[in-house]
Amino acid sequence: MEEETIVENPRSQEQTGDVVSVGSDLLSGVTDKRRVRKYNLGDLLFKNLTVLFAVVVLMLVLLMAFEMYDGSKLSFQEFGTGFVTSSSWDPVEEDYGALPFMYGTIVSSLLALLIALPLSVGVAIFLSELAPSWVERPVSFMVELLAGVPSIVYGLWGIFVLVPWIRKTVEPFLSDHLGFLPLFRGAPYGFGMLAAGMILAVMILPIIASISRDVLRSVPRLQREAALAIGATQWETTRIVLRDSRSGILGATMLGLGRAIGETMAVTMVIGNRPEISFSLFDPGYTMASVIANEFTEATTEMYINALIEVAFILFVITIVVNMLARLLVWSATRKWK
């Protein structure tokens, strides 16, 4: 209460004594509106400028959603929900359905996860639990290098190295030994779902591996020491660490999945680009991203472009959902120990 009176009426306090008057001078400097402006004009401008740009980032996501919604109105009105259930993609008849692309995206991404997940967890365990530091550093570096290679270079490598290898070695081997499964039937083209899944696996491995490594490392040392102290082997200790990092690894996997779903160039170059749904992994397929990449510049009619933008919109929504789940999982997993 005493302070408030000082603030309200600084001058009256000046008579009461030296000590108080010093205090009242300081306080009056802060609050007396006649002498010092409450806000510095520069501060006000600067803060609001940064707020403006923060809002720009926020609005960008909404703008993207709106632009794609606006750009796909025609096809949305024409086909409605049939767009995602129809498997006909016929630019001549102007009849569009995105099912083959959604199928291709899902199957190639899941195949990639199937290959990359065990490997990535293995790499993460190796880097965080097993490797001596003189091995760990170069391997970490190479895994990070793998993440930095542009998609187009993977695609180039895919066309000229991976696809011939799959055609000559992998597919004949699979059809010889597992040919009774419908998954491994048909002519070995090389270009197809299997090639797409494999190249995607190489591309998402560094993401899953490096995040999983960080998640494993965030498990406190005490957990390991406790296990080792009661006589657990290295693997048994690792299992305990793994059990503690389940949700984080799941999050890393989802991030990898998000990347695989949106990956364009490398997949476009090796998947064969045929809008058909086939259970055989040897057959060519098509993904949402690659149909946009291939046909956008060729799309001549309004409806064609609208249909392609709608494919982009669906892709956008799917990746956002997958990424949000992933972030939530990684966030809660690494926060657990803090």
């Binding site: 980032v57 364009t264 946009i292 956002i320 949000m324």
Partner: peptide, 25 residues
Amino acid sequence: GEVVRFMTDVLSGVPSIVVGVVAYT
């Protein structure tokens, strides 16, 4: 701030081809 941070993460997950479509429109 939390919302902006979250949206930044969301934006980093948007496939580059989708960003291309938006730049086109």
